[in-house]
């Protein structure tokens, strides 16, 4: 597949209060960004079980973003973002050993007013993933 044809899919888990609202704001502000992202809304970044991220990669996500409110104090639920930080700090260590380039995953803090940060993160992610190419498929181990 040539780079031209490669349309990466980026799965985003966005908290309802900060990042989802920032994505909305990017919309109301008519900012333009690549159409490669699919946002899944959760109430809090603390809800985003690393299992979902693994599931996304397993199904062919070329990149995954988990995004929530800025630590330490912005979380609508006091400390859900801290729970996300704890999990994904460790998660990043695993990814590479599991055979996935670490750049394919990002943990981001995007507040409700940071529509431009959202756009920047998406642009960067799409660019990075396009450079990396599609997630390498596994060989058919058993024909």
């Amino acid at each position: 597949m040539s780079n031209e044809d490669f349309k990466p899919k980026i799965v985003v888990f966005a908290c309802n209060w900060c990042t989802y609202a920032a994505v909305d704001l990017a919309g109301t502000s008519r900012m333009q960004y690549p159409a490669n992202v699919r946002v899944i809304r959760v109430m809090c970044s603390g809800r985003v079980d690393p299992q979902f991220v693994l599931e996304a990669f397993h199904n062919g996500a070329d990149g995954v973003i988990v995004a929530g409110c800025h630590p330490p104090t912005d979380c609508h639920y006091i400390s859900g973002n801290i729970k996300a930080l704890r999990r994904y700090t460790l998660f990043k260590r695993l990814l590479k050993s599991l055979g996935i380039e670490e750049e394919r995953f990002r943990l981001e803090w995007i507040s409700a007013s940071e529509a431009s940060k959202w756009v920047k993160v998406v642009n960067e992610m799409v660019e990075t993933v396009k450079k990396l190419g599609p997630l390498k498929p596994k060989l058919e181990v058993v024909e």
Binding site: V11, I40, V42, M43, C44, G46, R47, V48, D49, Q51, F52, E55, A56, N59, H76, Y77, S79, G80, K83, R87
Partner: peptide
């Protein structure tokens, strides 16, 4: 917030409206 659901090691805890099965289906 659902942080207990993400942490629950056995899958016993679920958040209504944002269950593991529901989010997985979206993924």
């Amino acid at each position: 917030c659902g942080t207990c659901t993400a942490a629950c090691p056995s899958g016993a805890m679920q958040q209504r409206g944002f269950k593991d099965t529901q989010i997985k289906a979206q993924v």
